[in-house]
Write a protein that binds this DNA or RNA. Structure first.
Lengths: 104, 104
DNA sequence: GCAACAGTTTCATAACCATCAAACACAAAT
DNA sequence: ATTTGTGTTTGATGGTTATGAAACTGTTGC
């Protein structure tokens, strides 16, 4: 999900993907680890979390699909980086959607 | 989930519940409707959404459980109100969790 | 080439969950 | 008290998904 979130908020489809991606505690934990450094290797995640590499790969795919992380390939290694603008756009859109309009 | 979100962020358990509650598009849409007015009746939701009242009731239960809405009983009717402080606390905690700490 | 390592994909499985229908509980009105 | 209306609970069902194992792809180094 490569979208421009410049002036207009998150597209509805991406909004749903982000919400879904954040809903799983394990995936959220993975995102937190990635966010704790400037970038985070897949290897480190595999060591840190008690799940198979297949499962890690699956979660990374979902996070990328939602636009929450960016992937960098370096030889045989993969590095991930959190896209905080997307996260910020999500929270902004979330608050906007429940901003009361009618009836004061 | 009745928690004091005064100075300290959302408790981890409630954080997970909120994330889960927001992940379903229908439930999110229900929350948006409730938030579009000062308060919203269950009746109105049942008319507005093409799902059974059983399903509406189920979603309301989840939203209450997450602390995202408050419920008021008035005779045979139910009214819901969005708890924006909880939503704000969730987004704050979300951003806090991915706020980079080490390695600049 | 071959072996070792890093990730991905596929397949199967179990758990979860959104949904409906129907039965239920409760309130209001006749 | 009986009926009607509003919401809840229960049971069943189909769809989604988190997970592991194993096969696969690609890269590094011998």
């Amino acid at each position: 999900m490569k979208s421009e979130i410049g002036t207009l908020g998150l597209p509805p489809k991406q909004f749903d993907l982000v919400a879904k991606a954040l809903a799983d505690p394990r995936r959220m934990a993975l995102l937190e680890s990635i966010g704790s450094e400037r970038e985070y290797s897949c290897q480190k995640l595999c060591v840190e979390f008690p799940v198979s590499k297949g499962t890690i790969s699956h979660h990374m795919k979902e996070l990328v699909r939602a636009g929450l992380i960016e992937q960098r390939r370096e030889g045989q290694y993969r590095f991930y980086e959190v896209r905080r603008e997307v996260l910020a756009a999500y929270t902004a859109e979330l608050m906007r959607r429940v901003a009361r309009v009618s009836g004061q």
